[in-house]
Design a protein around this nucleic acid. Sequence first.
DNA 1: TAGCAGGAAAATC
DNA 2: GATTTTCCTGCT
Length: 304
Amino acid sequence: MEFTVALTSPFSLEYTLASGQLFRWAKKGEWWYGVVSGTVIKVRQEGEVLRCESSSEKLDSAFVTRYFRLDEDLEHILATLTKDEVITKAVERLYGLRLVRQDRWECLASFVLATNANIPRISKMVSAVCTKYGDEFGFEGELYHAFPQPGKLASASLPDLVACGLGYRSHFLKRVSAAVSDGKIEFSEFDSMGYLEARKLLLKELLGEKVLLGVGPKVADCVLLYSFGKEEAFPIDVWVARVLAKSYPKLLGAELTRRYARDGKAKLSSSDYSRISERARTYFGPYAGYAQQYLFMAARGELV
DNA sequence: TAGCAGGAAAATC
DNA sequence: GATTTTCCTGCT
């Protein structure tokens, strides 16, 4: 099915898909191909128009609008964020970068795999898991695989997951998959919650045991921001910690700045993580997550 | 709370 | 080609 979406608000497909929030998009020639919601979607941007093709009827312009959050007033959001020269520069440089509304299960599972790995590696792991466990379908003569259901991964054997190159993450993915398929965590419960409450639920323990093994503060913030619609979440990875220490010494304070400035040797302790992310949320406000995404991409591209 | 293991591939030297 | 780093969490 082919359709177009007219853009009424700033959008950069390129920046959005290359910003590290997604792991199942790849550029082939002029088109971006993504596996989304069990189908392939093919997109290119022609100025103010998004040209789309999909292998399914259910991926229509309403879906695309929702997925890329084109219904959100990005200009307004960015206006609330540009409080200083650093973020202003990042926003100008990456104008049109948007957060995406990801599938919750896929986002959670993907970021459980993201610990101690870089983006190409994460994409590779996610792709291997999908190829092995996801439903297969064809598009333009190529084979694609949907993201597997939680139950499917919960019943996968550990050695098979290890064979996908997941290493020690295999155990985490299996446990998280089981927790989701057993209903120990219910995604719909998060809808009515604010950021802090939702975060607490993601990190909760039952009888002294983590429900979502492998989900710490950083992964929880990624999941909340990218798929649970909690825009004030401010995930701090090595890049964000680095850019904050370099360009926001006042926000961090002397001690934290000193600790994380020097080539990021120090690893972010959980108490420092809480302190820094709280200050960032207070400073940037209800759309702090957008600020994080601009700073992250700018830092990686050495733009700030 | 601090320190360490974990595990493979990318990035860097 | 070896070393360091990598969108970190769990355990002790």
